[in-house]
């Protein structure tokens, strides 16, 4: 037992052994999910509430499916439509939900640190499904599982994370996870989309795809957050695509067996060429989606176990 936390709020507080434990269990769930029949009552009798303060069809569906496959009762709450509009604070919302005694709370919020704050106020397990520009731990875990299965290991790999780093919680969680598991992480992107002093976090920073992708094993593309583009971070989408969009030529700088990843949803023709995205020999984008369900099952399974241990239930 290495992952002993009550919540999964980010990668930063996790020890490497905890990461390994989650990934090992997730790996088993991948196989289980591929079977035709897969009854699994791990979360039977538990209630899972998905609270999304920011729209996300894919992540929410993934969490919902993960909970249902393990037998949990899953409820989705579209928070944008409800209490927030009425001026209720995040903490009041949390306390209200807490009074309904859920066991697992899956939360996405547009502000960094909001999920941490919420976790302080409830006594169920909280899973961060993305908070602002801070962390998105299950995305980093599913990316790690994808890399592990495609490359046979999750250490001593050269991994380039490319694109809009500054607005990306996916990049933040990934660079922390990949650093903890002893990989060399490079960040590649225009200087306007690079967080200040990010090199101090133990990564190499490149502003040119040719240099940045040189001999990497993994190319991780990020979505260009168009909704956050009001500040004029880049001159235009076409210049961005020309300089940073992943096409056949740029991928040529990476190792011949380098894999291509993208957390989705993709902007084809902006950060990635559609042909690369669909290339089954290079792209593992569909696998990422598959790993997502398995990783979330594993995370919720372990959180439920930790919760039972804490409550003193012998299993």
């Amino acid at each position: 037992m290495s992952f002993t936390s009550q919540h999964l709020l980010g990668i930063e507080p996790l020890r490497p052994e905890a990461i390994t434990e989650i990934l090992d269990l997730a790996n088993a769930y991948v196989e289980q999910n591929r079977k035709a029949e897969r009854p699994d009552p791990t979360l039977a009798g538990l209630t899972q509430i998905n609270m999304f303060f920011e729209n996300s069809t894919r992540t929410q569906a993934s969490f919902e499916l993960a909970g249902k496959r393990l037998g949990a009762v899953v409820m989705n709450m579209a928070m944008q439509a409800s209490s927030i509009k009425k001026g209720e604070t995040l903490i009041d919302t949390a306390l209200t939900l807490n009074a309904m005694h859920p066991d697992l709370l899956v939360v996405r919020h547009p502000q960094s640190g909001a999920v941490d704050l919420l976790a302080q106020k409830v006594n169920c397990a909280v899973l961060n499904a993305g908070d602002g520009r801070h962390e998105h731990p299950t995305q980093a875990l599913l990316d790690a599982l994808t890399i592990m299965r495609a490359k046979g290991r999750l250490h001593r790999l050269n991994i380039a994370i490319c694109g809009d780093i500054v607005h990306s919680r996916v990049a933040r969680s990934n660079l922390i996870l990949l650093g903890k598991t002893e990989n060399r992480v490079r960040l590649v992107g225009p200087v306007t989309l690079m967080p200040p002093d990010v090199a101090e976090l133990g990564v190499e920073v490149y502003h040119d795809m040719e240099d940045g992708l040189q001999d990497v094993d993994v190319v991780m593309m990020l979505r260009l957050q168009k909704e956050r583009m009001d500040g004029g971070f880049i001159p235009s989408e076409r210049e961005y695509y020309h300089r940073y969009g992943l096409d056949r030529a740029k991928l040529g700088f990476a190792k011949p067996d380098a894999i291509v990843m993208h957390p989705g949803p993709m902007n084809r023709g902006v950060e990635i060429d559609g042909e690369i995205a669909d290339d089954i020999n290079r792209s593992v984008i569909q696998e990422q989606v598959e790993m997502g369900v398995a990783v979330r099952m594993a995370a919720m399974h372990l959180l439920a176990r930790n919760m039972k241990n804490q409550r003193g239930v012998v299993t």
């Binding site: 520009r133 002093d197 990010v198 976090l201």
Partner: peptide, 12 residues
Amino acid sequence: SGKFASLRGLPH
């Protein structure tokens, strides 16, 4: 702006 804000993902 700096390492702390970058790590915490805060507007800086």
